[in-house]
């Protein structure tokens, strides 16, 4: 019978059986033996408690899966995320299955182990097809805008030069041979009565001298055409 617990303990003590231990006397050797038995019992109890707690912790398979994260298009590749897992869980997962994505590492070299695990972990990259299409579209737009800008600027420059050339031709002073110019002021002939009358008479004579005989009806008459 265990003196610290109500339940009977069937496990035999390595050295002293606490159930059967009955102090016979109060000698120092007897006391020492009693203390030793108590210590053994306490150690057994703490071990069983730890095991119970370990069973209560959820396994990795029970952990809910993380929701997928949509990464923005031009962000740099994400760095591997450090996941802190309880040591006990890691140990259990290692024991239960060898296909787990996480590996248990010895506690002595924790930093080196985590680094190695992170290096082996898959790196998230931007594999979204819509993002790449958007990138292509924006690139096309940029190229079109660039070409349009170049064409506009070129047209403006060409137009400026054409305009300038036309301005130059229109502003060129006409070359005048000064040698042919009269030395003095040009006198416009003023009309006089005699001069105008002479002109009128000349015009009258000129118009009256017009020969219209060719337009006579006889030119195309039957007598002219069919006669001898």
């Amino acid at each position: 019978m265990n003196p610290l617990s109500d339940e009977p303990n069937n496990k035999p003590s390595p050295k002293v059986d606490p159930a059967t231990f009955v102090p016979e006397d109060s000698s120092p050797e007897a006391d020492l033996a009693a203390l030793e038995a108590i210590g053994v019992l306490e150690a057994e109890e703490s071990t069983s408690r730890i095991l119970e707690e370990a069973h209560a912790v959820p396994t990795l398979s029970e952990v809910p899966e993380p929701t997928p994260v949509h990464v923005a298009a031009p962000t740099p590749p994400l760095a591997p995320i450090e996941v802190e897992m309880p040591k006990e869980v890691i140990q259990e997962e290692q024991l239960s299955s060898s296909d787990t994505p996480f590996k248990a590492f010895p506690s002595e070299d924790t930093t080196a182990g985590i680094t190695a695990a992170l290096n082996e972990a898959p790196v998230l990259t931007n594999t979204n097809p819509f993002a790449s299409q958007k990138q292509k579209k924006s690139l096309k737009k940029m190229v079109i805008i660039l070409i349009a800008a170049i064409v506009l600027i070129g047209g403006a420059v060409a137009g400026y030069f054409v305009w300038q050339s036309t301005q130059n031709t229109s502003t060129v002073a006409p070359q005048i041979d000064s040698g042919n110019l009269p030395s003095g002021p040009v006198e416009t002939p003023t009309d006089t009565e005699a001069r105008v009358n002479a002109s009128a008479a000349a015009i009258e004579n000129d118009i009256n001298s017009t020969d219209d005989t060719v337009y006579d009806d006889n030119s195309l008459s039957d007598a002219t055409l069919y006669g001898n």
Binding site: A200, I203, E204, I207, N208
Partner: peptide
């Protein structure tokens, strides 16, 4: 044409000379 010149232009020129 003859008529226009002799009956309109020439008299108008004579008027101008006057």
């Amino acid at each position: 044409v003859k008529s226009a010149v002799t009956k309109s232009v020439v008299p108008a020129l004579r008027d101008y000379a006057s």
